[in-house]
């Protein structure tokens, strides 16, 4: 075993890590993410026009539709393949939240209902809820005392 310095080691690591085409990634993600936004807008118009819903109710239904779709696709194992192609375009919309929850529930399914699903369902989404609630409470309090509600 020959001795190599830290810099040489870093060089070797850099050479062997798979190099991704960032420009191509960016273009794919921008277009796919945009299409997700347009789909959501079309769905919202459908809910407003055909089911006569108020726009606030329609927006909740749009979110629910995307969550259920993402859960079903994760169940079939399709979502992971799509994420490999479209990357952040599927992880940043609410579909990523549903996918994280569904996949951690499925992964720990065999460990039982309480110690498996119960204690691990929030394993990946817990961070989003935690920092969302903490920052909303913190900034909400600042705004409440400085600017009033």
């Amino acid at each position: 075993m020959e001795n190599i310095s830290k810099e040489e080691y870093q060089k070797i690591v850099k050479k062997h890590t798979p190099h991704e085409d960032r420009l191509k990634n960016g273009i794919i993600v921008f277009i796919a993410g945009g299409i997700m936004g347009v789909l959501a807008q079309i769905l919202m118009q459908v809910y407003i026009n055909f089911f006569n819903l108020a726009s606030s109710d329609a927006s909740v239904l749009v979110i629910i539709t995307f969550i259920v779709l993402a859960c079903i696709l994760t169940g079939f194992g399709v979502f992971d393949k799509l994420v490999r192609i479209f990357k952040a375009a599927l992880l940043i919309p609410i579909t990523g939240f549903a996918h994280a929850m569904m996949s951690s529930a499925m992964e720990y399914r065999k460990e039982g209902f309480v110690t498996g699903i119960g204690s691990n369902i929030f394993k990946l989404t817990g961070t989003v809820i935690l920092y969302g609630v903490v920052s909303a409470y913190f900034f909400g309090m600042i705004r409440y005392f400085i600017m009033g509600a």
Partner: peptide, 14 residues
């Protein structure tokens, strides 16, 4: 909608 959702995803990917 296309521009906003696309740009948010693009920033995340970068």
């Amino acid at each position: 909608a296309f521009l906003f959702c696309g740009i948010v995803c693009l920033i995340a990917q970068i």
